[in-house]
Design a protein around this nucleic acid. Structure first.
Lengths: 153, 153
DNA sequence: TACGTGGATAGGAATGTATCCTATTTAGGA
DNA sequence: TCCTAAATAGGATACATTCCTATCCACGTA
């Protein structure tokens, strides 16, 4: 499996340390190693994969810590998730070409159409990964309901 | 919650019936109702949500049937999933703007860059859903490993 | 229309993922 | 170095998904 260059990883860890300090959270060994693992991997690991990768070096590392730390990193903006967050698998029976708006907080997903976005030019290099079946745009944001709840606090 | 117009739903069910016949699979009451539920919903329901919606009408409907049917519909191409399929949540620590290639079969996810795709124009209407945080392109396909395995069969 | 059969379902058991709980440990300021 | 609030470990729990198998039924055939 490919790795991100260590120089780049160090740079990202530096950014994380700054963000942690700014947010007033503690810089534990666990947090640094968990972030290092995600930052140095190109294949978007699951929490389980992160735990497995670190276990040899950190045999007492708990699953809970991995999960808590990954969500913390997400809140700090150092890490993001692929697809709708936290939720279970979501299904879509819209046969027309369309695109998705996804709420980062509650997972709400809505379709929208755009003939312009249906005609995107995908870089040649992508076909190195495999066949191309479909292409769609994902817009990430916070939905109106969640924005409302945020204000109520 | 909004619904897809019933005329459009009927059209999709017709397409499903044709596809089922072509594929030689049985048209059970359960399959039709499960497909109807996904096809008439605009909010991309989870398997659990589909089960809950149908329970009053079909009190003996099992979770297993809902799951099996949704994957069947996915294989038939009548339904798709949001984000990486089947897998657990995946994390991404790449701070640069980037896009994703996702394998529909195994969930492999890889980044790619394109300054052109970083500058997409999103339709006005999308801001009706909520705030816009980030936009990225998702390319769906079958990765080289999975294509290879497919040939071996 | 009735029959037979292979595919499909129900329901509970098993697995796997993610979170909660709480006693113990530790980072980082005083 | 000491103190304290924050963080962790590890087991318990909750929930999502799949597996297992006896039973049921869609649909081709007569």
């Amino acid at each position: 499996m490919f790795k991100v260059e260590s120089q780049e990883v160090d740079r990202r860890i530096e950014l994380f340390k700054q963000a942690a300090k700014a947010a007033g959270i503690k810089l534990t060994h666990q947090r640094i190693e968990i972030f290092r693992e995600v930052a140095s991997s190109v294949d978007h690991p699951s929490a389980e994969a992160v735990h497995k990768a670190l276990s040899p070096r950190m045999p007492t590392l708990s699953h809970d810590t991995v999960y808590r730390t990954l969500w913390l990193l997400t809140d700090l903006g150092m890490v993001s998730t692929l697809g709708p967050k936290r939720e279970s698998i979501r299904f879509d029976a819209n046969p027309e070409p369309h695109h998705h708006y996804v709420c980062l907080r509650c997972g709400l997903a809505r379709d929208f159409k755009s003939s312009e976005l249906n005609e995107l030019r995908i870089p040649e290099a992508v076909s190195e990964f495999g066949s191309i079946n479909a292409t769609q745009v994902e817009v990430h944001g916070i939905c109106k309901d969640c924005l409302q709840k945020q204000q109520d606090n």
